[in-house]
Design a binder for these strands. Structure first.
Lengths: 247, 247
DNA sequence: ATGACTTGGTGGACTAGACCACTTATAGAA
DNA sequence: TTCTATAAGTGGTCTAGTCCACCAAGTCAT
């Protein structure tokens, strides 16, 4: 276990430790079942206090990368299902993580008055304007999902002039508007494809679709986006890791 | 904000604080947007150190109940979607949380040799035995889901003699075998109902179904259960809260 | 050989501080 | 009146400990 920390960096020490161990697990340098340094050992290695080392291990535990047993130690957890931790990331990052090449075709991009449901989800008034984007999402140049997204105009002026086809939306929000994502609420449901969506996704009508309805919140708890994504069920499965007592 | 802690109890102080604030939020005594006591205030109120108060607030933040802004304070988060936090709970608890009355009809309960996929998911050998349960799950006496579950025999001897129709499986595992759930991996996908499942769920063939494939792990990282649940899409939607940096 | 006890290591909980970057309100100077 | 510096409060990070329950392995007496 070699771990060198950058004490000048603005990245917190616990985040550096967490990131390095996670990287080693994902690179299979630390294999499933292998012991991770104990909290005291890790603190000694990194020259930090035990609480800091503990914070790093705790994050790994909450993400399902390791498990801890009192009196025994900390170990790398086995992944049983093919879980690409569905963290709070955008389509672009998710597809790259799965080893696919994402691309996007914009079908609609306009401003409009917020419909009541959308206004309520975004915490704005119905007379407020929203950007309405409809996008066809492709993976390796083949249709994967149809997306219907709404964002409040007042927080993101000129968003419609940005390069949405090639840049990740979440990255634009962060770099151009300084708004970082922090939390999302999701509802997943199954349905059968309507004729319009079936045509857009190049599948037969009544094929199964997975609908992911997501409302995304920023660090300061602004509702940033309300989006419904209609995934082709034959090409997409959503994966999650649940933990009890995420303390 | 009144908060009385039981210092004799084996429940950790941070968990008591967390539970009490969560209860107040869920009972709407703390409304969306309302300020929660600051970390230092909370520590003062409860006569604990700031780190302990912080741990309680951190858990609430990770669950999406509150958000924190540096320099400002801690506030109750608005729920936009109708999110019943899909924590790591069983069918029985989940339905009760949604205000429905759960019931179960056992269609199959037997021991068998583990199929290869199941053995791999549970981390056992193919010659090992598993319990194989098929259950029809009802909510308010109407079919909601069909469930196909596998559990390793060696960890739960005589499980098939327990009262599975009326008791929560997870509760039995905890009280009778001392095995508490800690983590689960889930894959969600959409499909169309086969004839058999359609008949069991009293829907038309080719209706949409939501399949939740879950592998559950105990505190000591034993794979405890591998289960596929086929939900009627017209009666069930899965909800999640995602957070970035669950530290 | 077997069983009881000790020892050292582990994670879990908790304390009482520290410094930092950030925000807001306020008091004083222009 | 307007601007600016300051002070107080907030969450974020970090330290250097403490005590506890638990587990494994070795020791020692039976």
């Amino acid at each position: 276990m070699n771990l060198t920390l950058d004490r000048i960096s603005s990245v917190p020490l616990y985040a550096q430790i967490h990131g390095e161990i996670r990287r080693q697990i994902e690179a299979n340098q630390l294999r499933a079942g292998a012991a991770v340094p104990s909290e005291r050992e890790l603190a000694e290695i990194c020259k930090v206090s035990r609480m800091t080392a503990r914070q790093a291990l705790n994050a790994l535990k909450n993400e399902g990368f390791v498990y801890q047993e009192r009196g025994i130690g900390t170990f790398v957890a086995k992944r049983k299902l093919d879980v690409h931790t569905r963290n709070l990331i955008g389509f672009t990052e998710e597809m790259r993580g799965r080893g696919l090449t994402p691309s996007t075709k914009i079908l609609l991009a306009r401003r409009e008055k917020a419909a009541q449901e959308v206004a309520q989800e975004l915490g704005i008034e119905t007379e407020d304007e929203v950007f309405h984007f409809q996008r066809l999402r492709l993976a390796d140049d083949s249709p994967l999902a149809f997306e219907d997204a709404f964002l409040p105009v007042k927080h993101f002026p000129d968003l419609d002039t940005k390069n949405l086809e090639n840049e990740s939306l979440y990255k634009i929000l962060e770099t151009d508007y300084g708004v970082a994502m922090r939390r999302a609420e999701e509802i997943l449901e199954a349905t059968c494809a309507s004729k319009e969506i079936a045509r857009a996704l190049a599948i037969k009508p009544k094929s199964a679709l997975l609908i992911v309805h997501r409302v995304v919140f920023s660090e300061s708890n602004l509702a940033v986006e309300s989006v419904r994504t209609f995934y082709r069920a034959d090409r997409y499965r959503a994966t999650f890791v649940l933990t009890k007592n995420a303390v």
